[in-house]
């Protein structure tokens, strides 16, 4: 049997063992997950950014000014030397300033204007579609008014903002339903995967159960509340 199957199945069951209670098998899988993910993203940052944009740009293409970016990056590590720790603010200020500039335009043109444009809908013609369009406009306007905090929400503003809350609640409920279904579909996916090799799954379930039983008998997790 493929060792890949055994490892991936075992790790899946280690994570699911958390449904019983926090235990060493879950902690092992959890720490492995954090380590592997961090290592994965470090490798990706090197291969996709540092190597082509810094190393190859300087060594192969002769873009020597990129050494400035390297020096700026190195300044971040001065935070470990208290005397010059203030220098670590420079790269931070550079990145925050850059992304602040990008965001002003990106959010302004990408979100605000486009969303407003998409809400300019015809609500006078088209039967049921027009009613939906009108509801969308009313919902957006009332929800936005709910976020207007410069005046107390009383009188007409109170009524409109309450309607806005209703739209927001429907939106939150719909998002919740969607999230639940996506998580359940992931759970079904993992279960189907485990069913591809039922003997391996059965053997590992027995092993994990025995392990948890022994751990529990030795007083493991006695301080945890079962919720």
């Amino acid at each position: 049997m493929d060792v890949q199957v055994w490892i991936s199945y075992a790790l899946t069951l280690f994570i699911l063992s958390f449904l019983y209670k926090d235990n060493p098998l879950y902690k092992l899988a959890e720490h492995l997950f954090v380590g592997i993910s961090a290592g994965y993203y470090i490798a990706l940052a090197y291969q996709e950014t540092i190597r082509p944009n810094l190393w190859e740009a300087v060594v192969t293409d002769g873009h020597y000014w990129r050494i400035g970016a390297f020096l700026l990056s190195i300044l971040m590590f001065t935070r470990y030397a208290p005397k010059v720790a203030w220098l670590s603010r420079w790269p931070l200020a550079f990145v925050v300033g850059m992304y602040a500039g990008i965001n002003v335009i990106a959010f302004g043109s990408g979100d605000l204007i486009i969303q407003l444009q998409s809400t300019m809908l015809d609500f006078l013609h088209g039967g049921m579609g027009a009613i939906s369009n009108l509801l969308l406009i009313v919902g957006l306007a009332s929800s936005l008014l709910y976020f207007y905090f410069s005046r107390e929400h009383t009188g007409a503003l109170g009524v409109v903002s309450r309607i806005g809350v209703w739209f927001l609640m429907v939106s939150f409920g719909a998002s919740f339903g969607y999230t639940v279904m996506s998580r359940i579909s992931l759970a079904i996916g993992r279960t189907r995967d485990l069913m591809l090799h039922p003997l391996v799954t059965a053997a590992l379930i027995v092993a994990v159960t025995v392990g948890l039983f022994v751990w529990s008998r030795r007083g493991g997790g006695a301080d945890q509340e079962i919720t």
Partner: peptide, 11 residues
């Protein structure tokens, strides 16, 4: 209704 609420939050 979901789009109206989402759009308000996004804006």
């Amino acid at each position: 209704p979901n789009l109206a609420g989402k759009r308000a939050v996004l804006m």
